[in-house]
Design a protein around this nucleic acid. Structure first.
Length: 811
DNA sequence: GCTCTGGAATTATGT
DNA sequence: CCACATAATTCCAGA
């Protein structure tokens, strides 16, 4: 709350961070040989990388931009990163122009990358692009280009997405150590920074209320596409694509075969990691494994965090297709897409806002964008589109999208009053919009900021986040899609942050800081487009659950900005799942003594009389240690509810809580996501204690307990710490989920908790050395709500990483 | 004429 | 390398 506290937090955070970094760094080095030098230096790099910024189009441009901008934000981030950093950053920042060192590394990678591509040929397009660009820059530029295009813009493919989310932030988040740090980090930082930098420093000023500005710079890439789809008029796409399908598929496959490798190699060069199978990473197992890696990932994360945008993406990430599309489509894209206006990119700021926009919006855009974005004209064709890109502003100071933020702090609480339906069929770029996300009871989700008594309107940011067990972060395969039309009553504006589309919705005092979200649809990006991105480690297959993530940035008297965030319950976005797969939305109990026997009511969808409920205990390595089919009451089974008897745990003598999971199975491969459940020692009181119990045990037990992932532990701990939450924990019917239910946000077990944490809690968690060592990024996961404007960064805890073994989504 | 949808054909990917 | 199953994408058509 107060400044003091906040400061403390930050402080702690930093402190840890540093430690963490070191550790991480060390780890990283261990893992990656190349890393050492590069990493260390790299991080600092913050420098922008020319390439990055470049948004989109032009290398040149980008470059220019970079230098020009220097990266404010990078600085900020940088600081965060290196521990020492702060100082470090500063210097860097100030200096920063190019930070030679940093650049170098990136460049190198890039170059290679390019070269590879060319040679590899798979990505022809890229080549072309490059050609366009002046050779000199190429190295850097190259990267950017890809990214840009990738970005989707145009038509592309997954424009937005492509980079999507993660790029910036996430990567790190990504967690996976696999990454090629080398590549990534360097790139990332550099790039991003560039983006940010522009203005970075104070972005805030510009933003009035917290918006976020966006950024686009980074966006450059975005811009291009930003919405390509979003606005999408898909038409363009269609046209462009021609054989759209072919394209993607083809590409994809190719990639997988060649492309990927090719790509990898290049990229990899630096990094070995990525190994070709990014996909792998996703799986649970992977995670588990990765856990150890945290450190490295943490580093990466940090880096990413620092960098605002996801440079990586751009560079490598972009799939060939994208490029292609970009080239091909861009023209069209530019035209069409944006006309709509809204979407980003295209149009200049003005359009969107138009009448509706509020003054503040205008302010932002105009001012910010321009300020920050001063994007040079684009020489190249495709450049145009990009330039059009919207104005997003990135404010360096604002927390990266993959940072974990609390939902409440002091008097403020950002709450989802009406949750979205658990199913929403996302639309592809090739399709028309499938409408806005709706509430289960009809109507639309509603979000409200409580405790805000000022008269200044604020901006509510909305983006599509992940719904797996890992820390919440922008979803790489889905983007929010702005819906407009007569049926939409809520004004909104689309911006792109680090390749993640963000819908900005005004929160007005006259409306009690409450907003009905009837303007948000969900766009599905082709897996093939995203998976090819350079830093992308997540796999799209079966990764169809998302959460709506809302953020609000509240200016504080002290000049800092308090950022709050809440995530909705998970939303299944695939067509098939909506029709066949069982889905558990709620469970009447989150924990129970090992004796079992209690009836638990599951609410959700697609339950059948033949549905089976399987309880599973996984070892840290992901292997199933125990499986038990629970008894279900067929008579009470309804499509939306299922009564199951909690089976006795295999070990009746546990002394600390053991986390397991269960899922509903309708046959063969029709299984729901795993739901968390905690078995308590026989004599432990069920209800309230849970959190605490879990926590302790977890800590004590260590991995063995397995069930508890680091994250969870953290969460629990946090909860405990936070006074406020505790109550919530109990939720009437749903102990575990309390948060969900109560608070709202969190869908999956873990995340929710995070959100709830109070700042204090937050701090706490982070602070604990333990966490750091663990690598947890978890702690890091959450970031202090308040940030100094200037400081942007910091910490990014970045490291989100931590994947709890258990948590991983099963599927 | 256009958007929103539900359904389903095709294509891609994993085993 | 083929066949089969399942997931992902693209198309269609009706409201």
């Amino acid at each position: 709350m107060t400044g003091l506290e906040e400061q403390e937090f930050d402080f702690d955070f930093l402190f840890e961070f540093n430690q963490g970094d070191e550790g991480a760094a060390a780890a990283a080095q261990e893992h990656y040989s190349y890393a050492p030098a590069s990493i260390g230096s790299a991080l600092p790099l913050p420098t922008p990388h020319p390439s990055l910024p470049a948004p989109c189009h032009d290398l040149q441009t980008a470059t220019a931009g970079l230098s020009a901008v220097p990266a404010s934000h990078s600085a900020g981030y940088g600081a965060a990163m290196d521990g020492a950093s702060s100082g470090y950053f500063l210097s860097a920042t100030g200096i920063r122009p190019d930070g030679a060192p940093a650049l170098e590394s990136p460049r190198i990678e890039i170059t290679s990358y390019l070269g590879l591509h060319h040679s590899s040929s798979p990505f022809f397009h890229d080549v072309e692009v490059e050609d366009v660009l002046p050779g000199a820059k190429r190295p850097t530029a190259t990267l950017s280009l890809p990214g840009l295009e990738a970005y989707r813009d145009p038509a592309c493919l997954s424009p937005a997405s492509s980079l999507s989310s993660r790029s910036c932030n996430s990567e790190a988040s990504s967690y996976e150590s696999n990454y090629s740090f080398p590549c990534t980090s360097p790139q990332t930082s550099p790039w991003q920074s560039p983006c940010v930098s522009p203005k970075t420093t104070d972005p805030e000023d510009g933003f009035p209320r917290g918006l976020g500005a966006c950024t686009l710079l980074g966006s450059p890439r975005h811009s291009p596409c930003p919405s390509p789809r979003a606005s999408v008029t898909e038409e363009s796409w269609l046209g462009a694509r021609g054989g759209s399908r072919p394209a993607s598929p083809c590409n994809k496959r190719k990639y997988s075969l060649n492309g990927r490798q090719a790509a990898c190699s290049p990229h990899h060069s630096p990094t070995p990691s990525r190994h070709g199978s990014p996909r792998v990473s996703v799986t649970d197992d992977t995670w588990l494994g990765s856990t150890t890696q945290y450190t490295s990932s943490a580093i990466v994360a940090a880096i990413n965090a620092l960098t605002t945008d996801g440079s990586l993406d751009l560079g490598d990430g972009v799939p060939v297709k994208s490029r292609k599309t970009g080239l091909e489509h861009s023209p069209s894209v530019a035209l069409k897409v944006e006309p709509a206006g809204e979407d980003l990119g295209a149009a200049p700021p003005a359009p969107d806002f138009a009448p509706e926009d509020f003054s503040f919006q205008h302010i932002r855009k105009g001012a910010f964008c321009e300020q920050y974005l001063s994007v040079p004209p684009h020489p190249y064709q495709w450049a145009k589109p990009k330039s059009l890109a919207p104005p997003s502003y990135v404010s360096p100071s604002l927390p990266a999208l993959d940072w974990q933020l609390p939902s409440h702090s002091g008097p403020y609480e950002l709450r989802i009053e009406v949750q979205p339906k658990s199913h929403h069929r996302a639309h592809y770029e090739t399709e028309g919009s499938r409408g806005a996300v709706k509430a289960s009871a009809g109507g639309h989700p509603v979000v409200q900021l409580h405790g805000y008594l000022e008269n200044e309107p604020l901006t509510l940011q909305l983006f599509i986040g992940t719904a797996d067990d890992r820390l919440l972060r922008p979803h790489a395969f889905y983007q929010v899609h702005r819906i407009t039309g007569k049926t939409v009553s809520t004004t909104s504006h689309e911006a792109v942050l680090c390749s993640t589309k963000v819908l900005e919705i005004p929160l007005l005092p006259e409306n009690n800081m409450r907003a009905t979200i009837d303007c948000a649809g969900i766009l599905k990006l082709r897996n093939s487009d995203i998976e090819l991105r350079k830093g992308e480690t997540d796999i799209g297959r079966k990764n169809t659950r998302v959460r709506l993530v809302f953020r609000v940035h509240i200016p504080q008297p002290s000049g800092r900005t308090l950022s709050l965030q809440v995530a909705s319950n998970p939303i299944e976005c695939s067509q098939r799942s909506a029709q066949e797969l069982p889905l558990v939305e709620k469970q009447s109990a989150d924990s129970y003594p090992v004796t079992g026997g209690k009836k638990m009511v599951l609410s959700g969808h697609n339950f059948l009389q033949d549905s089976k409920v399987i309880f599973v205990e996984k070892a840290p390595d992901g292997h199933h240690v125990w499986e038990m089919e629970a008894k279900t009451d067929r008579d009470l089974c309804k499509p939306n509810s299922l009564v199951v008897e909690i089976p006795p745990f295999r070990n009746q003598r546990i002394t600390s809580p053991v986390q397991v999971s269960f899922y509903v199975c309708n046959g063969k491969r029709k299984r729901s996501q795993h739901q968390h459940f905690t078995y308590l020692p026989a004599n432990v009181p069920v209800i309230k204690t849970e959190p605490s119990d879990d926590y302790e045990p977890a800590a004590a037990c260590g991995p063995a307990s397995q069930g508890l992932s680091p994250l969870q532990r953290t969460y629990y701990g946090q909860q405990l710490a936070a006074p406020s939450d505790p109550g919530s924990c109990l939720l009437a019917g749903f102990p575990l989920c309390p948060q969900r239910s109560t608070m709202m946000p969190t869908p999956h077990s873990s995340s929710p908790k995070l959100h709830d944490l109070s700042s204090a809690a937050y701090t706490k968690g982070i602070a604990s050395p333990t966490h750091c060592h663990l690598g947890l990024g978890q702690p890091a996961g959450e970031v202090p709500a308040v940030q100094d404007v200037p400081r942007p960064t910091a910490l990014h805890p970045g490291a989100p990483e931590q994947p709890p073994p258990t948590m991983l989504p099963p599927q």
